[in-house]
Each structure stands twice: as C-alpha cells, then as structure tokens.
C-alpha cells in the first residue's frame, strides 16, 4: 500500500499535499495496490473529497496536539502509522515540513529515501527514482534497495491530478510522544499565496533601481494573479522583504511561469528558479546570462516593457 502524508497548516490541507496524493495514486496504480492518505490532527477540509486526487482511504490520527507541527513527533507518528497499516511506500511533498519528517520516517522504518523526486519511480526492474541534484543542474536516478521506500516529491513536478471519487475516513489510534517544542508566535504574510506554492511568479532585480519602482512589477503581478519575488541583492538592500528572496540561499521555487525583470541571472539565482516550467526574462542588457536559461526574452527597458505587458494581459483577459 502506498501511504501519502497530508501536510496541514492551521487546519488547512496544503496544496502540495494534493500533488503528493496524485503522485502516490499514480504510483499505486503502477504497483497494483491502493493509495491511502494519512492526516495528523484535524482540518476544516472535507476529507472524503481527497478521493478525487486518487486516495481510497484517509486515515486520521485525531489528536489535537498534532495540529502544531513538530518534526520529531510527526515523524514518529507517521512511522508508527505506516507500520500499523502495512505501508510499503510512503510519499511526502518535498516542502519544508515534508523535508523535515520524511528522512526521520525512513530511519524508523529502515527505509531508503529519495528526497526531491521529480518523476514517478521506474518499477519494471527494481525501484528507481529520479531526483534533481546540483540545484537543478542535473538529475540522479537512484535505486532504493530496501523493502520499504520513502519518497518526497518536488513541488510542481508532477502536478495535481483531479478525477472522481470519494475517500472513506478511518480514525487511527497512534500514541504521539509529547512535543518538547512550544510554538510562541506565527507570522504569516497575509492574503498571499506562499511563493513555494505559487504557479505564477513575477520577480524583480537590481535593474529596477529602487524600491520606489516596484509599482510596475506589482501591477503586472496583480494582472496575472501572480506572487512576487526578488533577487538576493534586492532583499539584502531591504528593497523587498527577505521572504521574497528566491535563489540558492533563499527560497527555491518551481512555478509554471517565472517572469524575471531586471535580474541578470547569476548562477546562484538560477539555482532557485531553474525548475520553473516557463521562464520569461525582461532585461535591457542583451548579454544578461539569464537569457540563456529563458524560454522567452524581451530586450528592453523594464519601465516601458512591464507596463506594456500588464496592459496586454489586461486586454487579453478583457477579450476572453
């Protein structure tokens, strides 16, 4: 049985989990077994509706203490649940929480782990999972040698697959160790899609010359319904908040569309965005290295090109 961990935040299922369930369901089909999901704590979402992503059952460890994420505690509960249910493959989203518990679950189940899978395993001979390595500059095909396998799936690499179906919900009694971590404050950016979950991202670099010029970028983002990001020099200069910094040392993202405005495309920046499906680069310097990694490029002054692009998007939406 393929068991998929449902990641929740503030009693809401994270979007990354729907992708993980879709991946787990496709793998279960390939292996001729069932896909079942595991929720720790409680959520406001309708659990039966998870069936539409391909899970036949949802096992729920109904313990309110588990609504607060503690990497160690969650990992112990998931490992015990996997044992109790007889899971042979355990799937996580490779988001912050998934990354933090999948390896510990692997330890407790003596299971080999592939962290950051970007495709379904090849299971015709053995069990081989492909993952990105060297910050997206290469792929490694990794054979898992153990009977039980743990995989965390890179966000936006498989996609959310919505079908039909309803899952049955089953309470599961698992003892959770007491958490030794007390969460004292949570500071979340209100009303914005977290960058790691955004499908459209508009990002600005030093080429925008100063924080006072961000209006054109925000207008473009608004016209698309996109999240906003920035390069490291921009966040280091406090033109934009640090949580917007994407790159090797910032957040690594993989949206469907990444529009880079006035970003030269240093290798450290590319490491954070090169898994994006489509990259548009707007830069006045035709020699900017980012053009080599781009799908579409516009050589021109951002202060003219960006408002024109916003207008073109709004026009296209109005006519749709």
């Amino acid at each position: 049985m393929v068991l998929i961990y449902i990641d929740q935040d503030d009693q809401e299922i994270k979007k990354a989990s729907f992708e993980a369930i879709s991946y787990g369901a496709a793998l279960a089909k390939q292996l001729g077994t069932s896909a079942e999901a595991l929720l720790l704590g409680t959520v406001k979402d309708d659990l039966a509706a998870i069936g539409k992503y391909g899970a036949s059952k949802v096992h729920q460890v109904n313990n309110l203490a588990l609504n607060n994420f503690d990497a160690y505690v969650n990992a112990m509960v998931v490992a015990d649940a996997a044992k109790a249910l007889g899971a042979t493959v355990i799937i996580f989203a490779n988001n912050i929480n998934g990354k933090a518990i999948a390896p510990a679950v692997g330890v407790k189940l003596s299971a080999g782990l592939v962290a950051g899978a970007c495709a379904l395993p090849k299971t015709d001979a053995g069990f081989v999972v492909t993952k990105t390595v060297f910050s997206g500059k290469a792929f490694a095909s990794i054979q898992i040698e153990t009977p039980i396998k743990v995989i965390s799936v890179n966000q936006n690499s498989f996609g959310v697959v919505v079908g039909e179906g309803t899952a049955t919900v089953h309470p599961l009694e698992i003892n959770a160790p007491a958490s030794k971590i007390k969460i004292t404050a949570t500071d979340k950016i209100k009303g914005e899609v977290p960058l790691t979950e955004a499908t459209l991202v508009v990002s600005g670099g030093r080429g925008l010359k100063g924080p006072e010029n961000w209006g054109i970028l925000l207008d473009l983002a608004k016209s698309l319904g996109a999240s906003t990001a920035c390069s490291r020099p921009v966040s280091d200069s406090d033109w934009r908040p640090h949580h917007e910094h994407v790159g090797q040392t910032g957040i690594q993202i993989a949206p469907n569309l990444y529009i880079a405005i006035g970003i030269s495309g240093a290798i450290q920046h590319l490491a954070g965005v090169n898994r994006s499906k489509t990259i548009v680069v707007i830069n006045k310097d035709p020699e900017a290295p980012f053009f080599k990694a781009a799908d579409y490029g516009v050589v021109g002054d951002a202060f003219e090109v960006v408002p024109a692009l916003t207008a073109a998007i709004l026009k296209s939406k109005a006519s749709a």
Partner: peptide, 24 residues
C-alpha cells in the same frame, strides 16, 4: 539503503525566443 545508478543533465533549452519590446 540507496544507490545512484546514473546521472543525466537536462536537455538544453531550445534557445530563448526573443520578442520585440514593442509587441507585448
């Protein structure tokens, strides 16, 4: 618990398609 079988490098992008800055 795991063995790397092989590495691959991503196929190169087919090349950037340049769009005239006046034709958004």
């Amino acid at each position: 618990y795991t063995t790397i079988q092989k590495f691959d490098t991503p196929s190169a992008k087919s090349g950037v398609k340049l769009i005239d800055s006046g034709n958004m």
